[in-house]
Structures are given as C-alpha cells and as structure tokens.
Amino acid sequence: MQSLRPLSAADPASDVAPLFELDGLGFSVPGRTLLGSLSLTLPARRCVGVIGHNGSGKSTLLKILARQQPASAGTVRFEGKALGDWSDRGFARKVAYLPQQPPPATGMLVRELVALGRYPWHGALGRLRQGDRDKVAEAMALTDVERFADRLVDTLSGGERQRVWLAMLVAQDTGCLLLDEPISALDLSHQLETLGLVQRLSRERGLSVVAVLHDVNMAARFCDEIIALHSGDVITRGAVAAIMTRDELLRIYGVEMEILAHPRNGQRLAFAR
C-alpha cells in the first residue's frame, strides 16, 4: 500500500461501501512469493479491472477472493466477515466465480448448466422451487442464451459458451462476480460482446464485478476502476483516466506506451511505441 497514492480527489473507492477488505494478504508457494503483502479495499457496485504483467499475481488474487485457494498470510473480509467464517453455500450465494478456462461441460444442455447456478440456494437435496426456475429463465434472457437452451454446451462456439457460463453465474443471483480472464480465449467480436454483457449486468443490476483482464484497452473501455499489480504487489490503482497515462503504463508493463484519443468517443487508447 505504500506505493499507493491518492490519484484524484474523486477516488472512486471512497464513495461506496467496501466489498472486500484485504489486510496484509500474502500468498507464497515453496520458493516463490506470488503475492506480497496486499492491503486494499474493493468497492461494491463497480466494475473493477485487475491488470498486470504475466505472473504479477492477478489470478492468484482472484482465486483467494473466490475462496478457491486459502491465503498464506493476512486476512480477507467480505462484507465485514472473514472469508473463512463464511459457509460454503452462504458465500456462494454472495459471490460467483468464473475460472480462467471453464471446463468442458460434456453431455450437458445449456439449460441444465445454467440451472446449476441455483445449487447454493437449494443445496444437494432441497426442492427446486418456482423461484429457482424463474431465476434461471431470467438469467438466460439477460445473457441472451435462450435460443441455445436445448443445445449441448460442447456444440456451442467459444463466445456462446462463455455467455452460457455467465448465465450460470447470473442465475447464481449473487451481488458479486469474480471473472478470471473472461475473454482470453475469444476473438475480438466475442471479447467485446462478453465484456459488454458484463458491463451491462454491472450497471443494470448493480453487481460488483472484479475481472482479471490482459488487455489494458479492454479494461479501460469496460471498467470503472483499474487495479494494477506488479510482482505480487499493487503498483497503482485508480479511475481509468488516471491509469491510462504514459508514466503509469510504463510502471505497470515496463514498456514505453503512447496514448491516443479515440477518434469517435475520445476514450484513451494505449499502444506500444
């Protein structure tokens, strides 16, 4: 946190209640420290992009937030309660997580996969109520996957499949989505489509989103705020305009970048010099 400085008076994190609070979070495997000592808060109801070079600890951070891995040092609180104190299903009702490479859902129909999102609510033996069915239908409508409802997931294209996984997350009906490189395997049009959907969900339904993204321009286009990691530490964070500067990008990626304004909407674009 030492390297962190307030970037502007209107620090986006300050005007909403914190969702995640990280205190001295560290993660190391024998012989390597993946995350140093992270202390930061993540705001609710915002779309936060996490960027950084390969091996900077982005995915590790997200996995710890999603309770996929226990941290090796420090504490993480979600809604004021330490992660370890949440029950499995209780946490899954609050936070949904999409891993970097969603597994092949061999032999499942789209409808069935989306319905799995209701597991945290009905559990192993609970009855499937009308409310659950409604949530599934709503999620499929929101993500526009209704027309594939009766197709097998493994017959869909990459972009369609990613939308189906997002539909499952939406059906989970959580206030928070954690997405690990949701567009890394997609072509450009599907990248735009998927991130557009995420942004729309965040805005329309007031979801908190934390997404690991590789492409700084994509992060700038779709996120409200950007957190940059470098070698397992937060190197900088702030609103898009504050990050998309030559100096900041040089610090993040170690590459000289130029910034241009988008000819249509004035949005900043970065490219390597």
């Binding site: 309770r67 597991y119 192993a124 033996l125």
Partner: peptide, 23 residues
C-alpha cells in the same frame, strides 16, 4: 441418487464446484 446434484457439478472440476459452494 441422493448425490445426483453433486454428480452434476463434480465433473466440472473443483473451480466451478467451489464457486457454487459445494463442499
């Protein structure tokens, strides 16, 4: 059959299973 819902989720791997709150 009591484990049927688990059996739907488990083939999807530990990442998805944990995300859905499956112990």
């Amino acid at each position: 059959p009591l484990t049927a819902r688990w059996l739907d989720i488990l083939p999807l791997g530990s990442g998805i299973a944990r995300g859905l709150g499956l112990g």
